[in-house]
Design a protein around this nucleic acid. Sequence first.
DNA 1: ACTAAATCCGACTATTTTTGTCAAGTATAA
DNA 2: TTATACTTGACAAAAATAGTCGGATTTAGT
Lengths: 150, 150
Amino acid sequence: MSLRISTKGRYGIRAVSRIAVERESLPVSLHTISREEHIPLHYLEQLLLRLRRKGLVSSIRGPKGGYVLNRRPDRISVAEILEALEGKLSMTDCLSRGECSLDKKCILNPFWARLNDRIQSDLDNITLEELVSGAWERKLKPAVHIKDPA
Amino acid sequence: MSLRISTKGRYGIRAVSRIAVERESLPVSLHTISREEHIPLHYLEQLLLRLRRKGLVSSIRGPKGGYVLNRRPDRISVAEILEALEGKLSMTDCLSRGECSLDKKCILNPFWARLNDRIQSDLDNITLEELVSGAWERKLKPAVHIKDPA
DNA sequence: ACTAAATCCGACTATTTTTGTCAAGTATAA
DNA sequence: TTATACTTGACAAAAATAGTCGGATTTAGT
C-alpha cells in the first residue's frame, strides 16, 4: 500500500485539531487528547514534543497545563504540521538528496517531482482552520481529467 | 519523510519503461534491465513476477527470452503498475478498510479520502507511453492555488 | 511547604515493512 | 546437450514505524 501517511502524521493532525477547537485557547492536556482521540499517551507525548520544537505549539507545565497553538489556526497549514512530524514531503530519496544515483539521469525524476509538487501544493493550501471547519472541501476539488476519446 | 513511493514501485516503473522502449517488442531479460537500470537482479525478479501475475507483462523462457508487455504502452496506466507492485493506493488504513476505528466518526477521513482521490486520479491519467515520451508533462500541470488576500 | 497534575526527555523495545538474497527447479533456443 | 533465462518459495538483513518506560522538572492549589 503505497503513499501512506503514517500514524505519526495522522495522530499529530488530530492532536493539533483538538487543540485548535478548544474555546478560549485554554491549554489542552495530553491526557485529554489521548482520551478523546484514542492516541497512546506516551506516543502522543513524543509527537507534541516535536511540534513544540518546531514552534507550532507551546506547552504550559503544571496542573491545568497542556498545549496551546502558537499561531491562529488560519495561519497554520496542514503541510507544516505533517512536515514537523514526518519530515519534508518527498516521494523519492532522489528528490530530497537533489540527485539521482543513476549514471544517466533518470528520466522519471521530473515526473516524481511534479507529482510531489502537486501534493505539496494541496497540503500547503489547506489551513488547520479549514481542516476543522470543513472549508477545505471548497478548495480541494475532486480532480477531473480529460478522458481519451475512445 | 512522508508519502514515499518505495523502491519497489520506482524500480518496477523503470523496468516496465525499459521493456516498453524495446523496439519491435523484443523480450527484455532480467539481466538487461538489472544492468541498465541498476536494479538488484533477484529483487527485480520478484517485481516482474508480480507484474506477470497481475497480467501486465508476459515472460518468455529460455535463451533470448525475457519479458514483453501484454498491452500497448498507451493502454497501461502508471496507477496500474504501482498498484500491481505495492497494492492499492491508500493514504490510511481507514480508507482501505472502509471504516475508522474511532467511536465518533473521524472528521479527517473525508480529507484523506479526497487527497487520495486526487493523487489516484493523477496516476490513473498518465499512461506508460506518456511517461516514456515525456507527454505526461502536458497533462500534469503544476498546481496553482488561489492565494488568500492579505 | 507539600502534593498532585502536568510536561520534559532520553533511552529502550517491539513490530512491521522494505529491501533484498539464495537455492533448486523448469523451459527452450541453438 | 548445454547455456541462457524465467519460476518459486523461503529466508535474512536493515530500516522505519509505533509504542513504552522511568525519572526529572515545573507549577497551581492548599
